[in-house]
Computed example of a mutant assay.
Amino acid sequence: MSKPFDMELFLSAVLTGSYATRQRHLRQAKIIQAEIAERWQLETPWAWRRKHVAWFLEHRLARRCESTQYYYLLTVRLLVGRLEKPWVFKCQIRD
């Protein structure tokens, strides 16, 4: 029997900022993980590819307000940094 993936432990090396900011990133990372796991049965970020994260940003957040999209993008950048991947995602928000 395997243990469930611990997102808090995974992100602990890259989480900075206030307590509220760290908690928001953890909550959003768990939501991202759950959505990707439901769609592609990939339980850990180590199994993700760029297309999985891009799908979440483009399709699951499409109807969310711009500020929500922006905060999720910040969380995605933390995840990508922790994975040490060269993936770049642009913010869809218009200036």
Rank of each mutant, 00 (worst) to 15 (best):
L79V: 15
R49A: 07
F89G: 05
R60I: 01
R27P: 00
T44I: 03
L61D: 07
R63S: 09
T21H: 08
K85M: 14
V76F: 04
Y71Q: 12
Y72S: 05
R39A: 12
W87R: 10
R82G: 03
P86Y: 08
I36R: 01
E58G: 04
Y71H: 15
A13F: 05
E58M: 04
G17P: 04
S2T: 11
T68W: 08
E8T: 09
L11R: 02
I36H: 02
D95L: 14
Q33S: 11
M7P: 05
K30V: 00
R50D: 06
Q28D: 15
G17W: 05
R39Q: 09
I32S: 01
K90Y: 08
V88T: 15
L83Q: 12
K51F: 05
L42I: 03
Q41R: 13
M7Q: 09
C91M: 05
A37T: 09
G17D: 10
R24Q: 12
L78A: 06
T21A: 11
K30M: 13
A37E: 15
L15Y: 09
S18W: 00
L83G: 08
Q33M: 13
S2E: 12
Y19V: 03
S12P: 00
V53G: 00
R39N: 03
Q28F: 10
E84F: 03
L74T: 02
Y19T: 12
R60G: 03
M7H: 10
P86G: 05
S67G: 06
E38L: 03
R63I: 00
R77A: 12
C65Y: 01
I93V: 14
R64Q: 13
L9C: 04
A29V: 08
W40Y: 15
W40C: 04
R27N: 00
E43H: 08
Q28I: 06
P45W: 07
D95I: 07
A47C: 03
R60F: 10
E43V: 08
T68A: 06
R39D: 01
A20P: 00
S12E: 14
V80W: 11
I93R: 15
L11C: 13
V14Q: 12
R77S: 08
Y70E: 15
C91G: 06
R82C: 11
R50P: 01
